[in-house]
Design a binder for these strands. Structure first.
Lengths: 173, 173
DNA sequence: GCGATTTAGTTCGAAATGATATTATCAAAA
DNA sequence: TTTTGATAATATCATTTCGAACTAAATCGC
């Protein structure tokens, strides 16, 4: 019953291919290109592996990683309320997708939608009590999942990683 | 100041929300939880921003990031050939998706499919000359895109980042 | 004020992706 | 040999996602 998908996440074959790309491409600064591409793919593989694992865990509870993230971001907002566009920024999802996700969450009574009194274009999304309970219930388990992954690094290393990733993200803005 | 007009990618609001999650969750090791969650979301946001940018660039040429990565991985393989499952590992995509992607690439004459002579279950995917040209043509531009992002880091910092990310990915395997 | 522009949110259609079942082949054990 | 199980690839179906078009409401410029 160990349906653990045999996921050979070994990055070695990927890295070898990137090496060969750089050899074949004969770029002027092949070494740096090689490293940049590797960094890019590392991030991609990590993200996909994380999403896959989170989704597999949450599926039993008829949730997915994006919905849970949305609930968590609401959970952590003042009065548990956000606008759809704020939620889109917080989760990284498109606004269209946020609309759909909120449809689902409202249908599940985890979330309420109400018109904003000051700006009638806006909508207030507010976490319902059931949504709050749900977040409280799953947070520890989700925390453990993330925990185990980054615990291979020391505190210093985590600080370094955080700093480096933030600078990279800033560059993408 | 903080309200940067054209920067929806600002991570600051996300980080503030993560902070509040940790405060509310009252975990025993809130500080470390906070950092782990931030790291997780940083990686997610970087990956999504990268994918969005690459897709936007490649769309003009009726390609997407995944297809291009597939072509690149073939480009760098011995004899420009791989099996679908190898290609799935190299790209991080599911096998089902690799089948579909290859359907497209074969239709575009960028790729050929032929049965493997030794094991008739297998299929040999081979980059067609047109596919090879295409990779050669776009590689410099794709390289520049990745380049600019990671160039904010020094050589030492890139080495560190590579090392840290590899250890994280290993933990996910 | 008032038209033009911008912004917030949604809708809709198309594209991308994954999970599962299916088919064909190989490998290994009985 | 026959059977059993594993593996490779695909087909099928449902879900997820984004982009573009759209509506409504606010704001800006005059």
């Amino acid at each position: 019953m160990n349906a653990k998908i045999s996921t050979p996440l070994s990055f070695v074959p990927v890295e070898q291919k990137i090496d060969r790309v750089c050899v074949r491409a004969t770029a002027p600064d092949a070494q740096q290109t090689r490293q940049n591409v590797i960094l890019s793919h590392l991030i991609r593989h990590i993200q996909m592996a994380q999403a896959t694992q989170s989704n597999a865990f949450l599926r039993e509870y008829e949730l997915n990683a994006v919905s849970f993230t949305a609930l968590m971001m609401l959970f952590s907002s003042p009065e548990c309320a956000l606008n759809p566009s704020e939620l889109a920024d917080a989760t990284g999802e498109s606004r269209a997708n946020v609309t759909r996700i909120c449809d689902e969450l409202v249908a599940k009574k985890l979330l309420t939608r109400s018109p904003n009194s000051e700006d009638r274009r806006r909508v207030d999304l507010r976490l319902a009590p059931e949504g709050e309970e749900l977040v409280q219930r799953f947070l520890p388990q989700m925390r453990d999942r993330v925990h185990n992954v980054f615990n291979v690094l020391s505190q210093d290393e985590r600080n370094t990683l955080e700093n480096l990733l933030k600078r990279v993200l800033t560059e993408l803005g």
